[in-house]
Amino acid sequence: MIAVVDYGAGNIHSVARALAHVGADFEVTSDPSAVAAACGVVLPGVGAAADTMRGLRAARVDDPVVSAIQRGVPYLGVCMGLHVLFDHSDEDGGTPCLGVLPGVVTRFPDGLAVPHMGWNQVRPTADSELLAGIPPGANFYFVHSYFPQPSEASCVLATTDYGLTFTSAVQRGSLFATQFHPEKSGRLGLRVYANFTRLAGQTPAAEFA
């Protein structure tokens, strides 16, 4: 069972609909023991870093999520589920995050229209199981004002240009996270969820095989 972690944040239903569409076996849960027992963990999220960290702690799912990542359980973070992996986010006057990946999350510089909202190109920097079957430079849907700056180049999985070139997906082992929203990115986005379903040891629906 894939655990979609419900800590009171936004777009959880969109993520659940996408997983359902690709035939994943999943549950939306805020139960720490369900997260601990899951074969895959999805951490969605829209909103602000401080709210996200507060929500994770209040639901007491922060430790189970980190523990699952450390045990090598496949993890997919989306948007805030990417940001909270780093040491620190500048959002909300500075927010300490989970510290799973070294680096910080910072705001787009002045002069760029923020939020960065719409379809933009994702350029993988390495082959990966998560982005298998996705053509390089394919468009995905973004909505965000802050972006990650990993301090280790080895965890960068893809980049995107918006005034500057930023990291739009990361990987370390079975940990994956995207700045874009695959659940709002049409058929290619569904392909990402199908790939993650496979990473979690499940067989996605035939059309995504």
């Binding site: 969109s14 609909r17 996408a18 359902a20 709002k184 990115s185 049409g186 986005g189």
Partner: peptide, 8 residues
């Protein structure tokens, strides 16, 4: 629509 169409 949202259960079948995965764009904004």
């Amino acid at each position: 629509v949202a259960s079948q169409v995965f764009i904004p």
